[in-house]
Design a protein around this nucleic acid. Structure first.
Lengths: 133, 133
DNA sequence: AACGCTGTGTAATAATATAACATTAATAAG
DNA sequence: CTTATTAATGTTATATTATTACACAGCGTT
């Protein structure tokens, strides 16, 4: 089983929850998702959180830490679940995933005072989006 | 006394809570703080959260978003609570504030695809600290 | 069949954070 | 000094976010 890219066949719950996040124009919170999937038989928070955990792990979605919300990855299947950057509008709360080769290169190579490099990072920029300015 | 910037005279509750965070070698969570200050007459979560909000606002402490925990600012350059960077050890959970002129300059000047600059950012690096490697 | 692994279902509860309202302290303006 | 205004406090209740614990089902491997 030597595949370059392991295909993650999503399970039923994972697929349901991914679809909802993927279709949403804005980050969704866990309990918002729960509310939206109760008609599909997912009744308990844990069912949602388990799917979210897995989806984050495999890079299909990202968690916006400052908002406790989840957004689908649109970076052509972020093999970089480990290197995420977002811009967040402080008025309308619009969140956009930043994909900048320069930025990711800079951060991936960043070394601290002790020369230590890091395996993972999350960056959140805040400001006002075009509309809100 | 060297006053480069406006002194914020902390209120009673703010001072109590800042002292605890400032003395702690590790980030503290709101309810950990609450338990630790109940002997000093602070009884309710809201009293803690209000002090935390204020302390974050004036840059005396920072919130580690991925951990829901608070750490004192030891970086003379970030009286601005607007540009924060941390390294987090995924094993021992040690958190260190990064102060790198290069990094902060790079991020402060970062423009996205639309040429937009941001007023604020928070960056969290993850990896293993020296001890844990 | 027995095992290990992943996923599911359910109930209960823990942990994190805010709303609403009343009061008091500190500061600024007349 | 007095009043207006803002900042901080105290208290109760509640909202929001997330996990623990336990039972079981499906599937591929041994």
């Amino acid at each position: 089983m030597n595949k370059m890219h392991k295909e993650h066949n999503l399970s039923k719950n994972q697929q349901i929850i991914f679809d909802i996040i993927n279709k949403s124009p804005e980050p969704l919170k866990a309990y918002t998702i729960l509310f939206n999937v109760q008609k599909k038989g997912i009744k308990a928070p844990l069912q949602v959180y388990r799917a979210l955990d897995k989806l984050v792990e495999i890079g299909k979605i990202h968690k916006i830490e400052s908002r406790n919300a989840f957004i689908a990855c649109h970076n052509s299947s972020c093999q970089v679940a480990k290197a995420t950057a977002f811009s967040i509008c402080e008025i309308c709360e619009k969140v956009t995933e930043i994909s900048s080769a320069g930025l990711s290169k800079y951060l991936a190579n960043f070394k601290d005072k002790d020369g230590m490099k890091y395996s993972k990072y999350n960056l959140e920029f805040f400001g006002l989006c075009k509309k809100c300015r």
